[in-house]
């Protein structure tokens, strides 16, 4: 388990370092994900010892957002001022973004499979 965690964290550090050195507006973790993808493409498989740890982390991915999510507790005062409008904007905008993206991609894929 330590081996897998070390490899994954090494990619994370490499991503963070690259993000700062290159000055690109991409989070280090996302760059780490791309570097890790490149490594598996080069190897043509995922090393089992790393895969076990990765699967364990992904299994609990929703949990990892909870500590940041509890930060909503500090939204209280602002909610009192603009709360209803803020929630309305968020709900509508998120639903529109989801719906439009999903329908666009589905339409493009269907058009392609027909043509």
């Amino acid at each position: 388990m330590l081996y897998g965690l070390t490899v994954i964290c090494a990619f994370l550090l490499a991503g963070e370092l690259l993000s700062r050195l290159a000055g690109v507006p991409v989070p280090g973790a996302v760059l780490g994900m791309l570097l890790f993808t490149g490594w598996t493409m080069w190897r043509k498989d995922i090393e089992p010892r790393v895969a076990r740890v990765g699967a364990g982390l992904l299994r609990y991915l929703p949990l990892l957002f909870v500590p940041a999510g509890v930060g909503l507790i500090e939204l209280g005062p602002r909610l009192a001022q603009e709360g209803v409008a803020m929630i309305a904007v968020l709900v509508l905008s998120t639903a529109i973004t989801l719906g439009v993206t999903a329908l666009t991609l589905q339409w493009l894929l269907r058009r392609r499979s027909r043509g």
Binding site: M33, M41, G54, L58, L64
Partner: peptide
């Protein structure tokens, strides 16, 4: 929240490696 986060940040810290691990389903 600051007191809470001092303890819960160990979970928060795993977000980084978990994001890197998303390379696996992507691959």
């Amino acid at each position: 929240y600051a007191d809470y986060f001092a303890g819960a940040q160990m979970i928060h810290l795993l977000l980084g490696p978990a994001t890197v691990a998303l390379a696996m389903p992507l691959y």
